[in-house]
Amino acid sequence: MAQRHLDPTDPTAEAVTADALAGYLRAQATEFLRALRLHREGGSNGAGAAARGYAGGRAGSVEESVDAARALRHSARRISGSLHTFRPLLDPAWSEEMRPELAWLSGTLGLEHAYEARLERLLLALHRLSGAAVLPAQPVDARAAGGRAAGVASLPVKAAAENTGGPGGPPPAAERGNLTVGAAKAGALLERQLTLARTRAHSTALQALGSSRFHAVADKVAVLASEVPLTPTAPTTGLYPLAAAAEERLTDAIAALPLITAGHPYNAEALVHGLSPDPSPHPQDGPWHQVRLLLRLHRYAREVLYGGEAPLDVRQLTAGQALNRHRDASEAAAAAAQAARTPRITPATAYALGVLHADQRHEVEAARFAFQQAWQRQTVDAP
C-alpha cells in the first residue's frame, strides 16, 4: 500500500479523501460495540447488569469490565474527535447531535478511574514527603481547630514551598517530623473524600450505561459501524486541509503558552492562587489543558490520514505524556486544597495538606518544563 503523506505539495503523495475518514469511523464504531459486549461479559460486580438489555452475554472478571469501559471511552473519544476535526465532511445535524453525547459518555466513564488514580497519587506523595505510612489507620480528626482557619488558605507560601524541598523532593529532616504528625490524618481525609467521590462516580457510570440516553448513543454507533453520513461533496474532498487546520490550532495554542515561565522550577504565582480560599480551577492551568485536548485531536487526525501506517512521532508522544502528568498533578493539587478547606480539621492535618498541595504544584511546573523540552525537539519518525 502506498504511504500516505501530510504534505500536499509532495508529488508522490497519495490523496486522502473521505473514504479514509469513513473507514476510520466504521472501525472505531466496531471497537465501541466490541467493548460494549466485553463490558457486559465482564460485569460480575454488577457493572455489566446496566448494559444487559443491549449487549447480552455472560459474567466475567471485574478487570475485564474495567478494560472494556476504558476501550469504550477510547473509541468514543476518537469518534467524537474525528467528528470535530472533519465536521465539514459529515452531515451537520447528525454530527452536532453525536459529539456532545459521546463526550458525555467518555467523561462519565472516566471519572471513577480518575478519582482512584488521584487518591493513589496523593497517598504516595504523602508517604514520600513524610517518610511514614499515610494510609488511614484512625478516623479523621474532626475536632474544632478554629473553624476553617486551619485550611490551606492559612499556610504561608514560603513555608509550603520550602517544605517540599523542590519538585518531587522530600522536605528537610527538621520539618519532616511536623509533617508526619498530620500526614496520617490527611491521608485518612483524602481517602474518605476521594473514595466517596469514586463510589458516586461508579454509581453514575452504572446509571449512565443503563439509561435510555446511552442506548440511543449505542444505537447510533451501531448504525455508524456500517453507514457513515457523509455530505454529497465529501467523497471528492481531501482530508489534508482539515487535518492541517487542526495542527495549526495546536501550534497557535502552544505559541500562546508561557513556555519561558515553564522553564523555571518554581512558579510562585501558581502556588499563591492554589493557596487562596477560592475553589475555582487554577487559571494558569486552563491553557495547558486546552493544548492537551488539541494535541489529542491532532493525533486522531493523523490516525485518520495514515490509517494503520502512522509513523511514530517521538516529540508528540513525549509531549502528550508531559501534559498528562500536568493534568494529574493539577487535579491532585486541587483535591489537596479542597480537603484542606474541610471545616474543623487540626492545624497539623491542614499543614500536611498544604505541603502536599505545594508538592503537586511543583509537579505541575516540572511537567510544564518537560513539555517545553519535548516540544523543542525535532520530530523523529520510526522507519
Rank of each mutant, 00 (worst) to 15 (best):
D141K: 09
D141R: 11
A142H: 13
A142T: 12
R143M: 00
R143H: 08
R143L: 03
R143Y: 00
A144N: 08
G146W: 02
G147Y: 07
R148W: 10
A149N: 07
A149K: 06
A150P: 03
V152M: 05
V152Q: 07
V152W: 07
A153G: 09
A153H: 15
P156Q: 07
P156T: 06
V157R: 12
K158M: 04
A159L: 15
A159I: 12
A159S: 12
A160Y: 12
A161Q: 13
A161R: 14
A161H: 05
E162A: 15
N163F: 11
N163W: 15
T164Q: 10
T164A: 13
G165Y: 09
P167Q: 07
P167M: 01
P167T: 11
G168S: 13
P171Y: 01
P172T: 04
P172M: 07
P172L: 06
A173I: 09
A173V: 14
A173F: 08
A174H: 11
E175I: 00
N178T: 05
L179Y: 11
L179A: 07
T180M: 13
T180S: 14
A184C: 11
A184F: 01
A186T: 05
L189Q: 07
L190N: 04
L190Y: 06
L190G: 04
L190P: 02
R192Q: 15
A197N: 08
H202A: 13
H202L: 13
S203P: 00
A205K: 03
L206V: 06
Q207I: 02
Q207W: 01
Q207P: 00
G210F: 05
R213L: 06
A216G: 15
V217H: 01
V217T: 12
D219Y: 04
V221Y: 02
A222G: 12
V223W: 05
A225S: 14
A225F: 03
S226Q: 13
E227Q: 15
L230Y: 11
T231P: 01
P232W: 04
A234M: 08
A234N: 06
G238C: 03
G238Q: 14
L239M: 05
L239T: 09
Y240R: 14
Y240I: 11
L242K: 00
A244M: 10
A244N: 05
A244E: 14
A245T: 11
A245F: 01
E248V: 06
L250D: 00
T251W: 00
T251N: 10
A253S: 03
A253W: 00
I254Q: 12
A255R: 15
A255C: 02
A255G: 09
L257Q: 05
I260L: 15
I260G: 09
T261I: 06
A262V: 01
A262K: 00
A262R: 05
G263H: 04
N267G: 11
A268Q: 13
A270D: 12
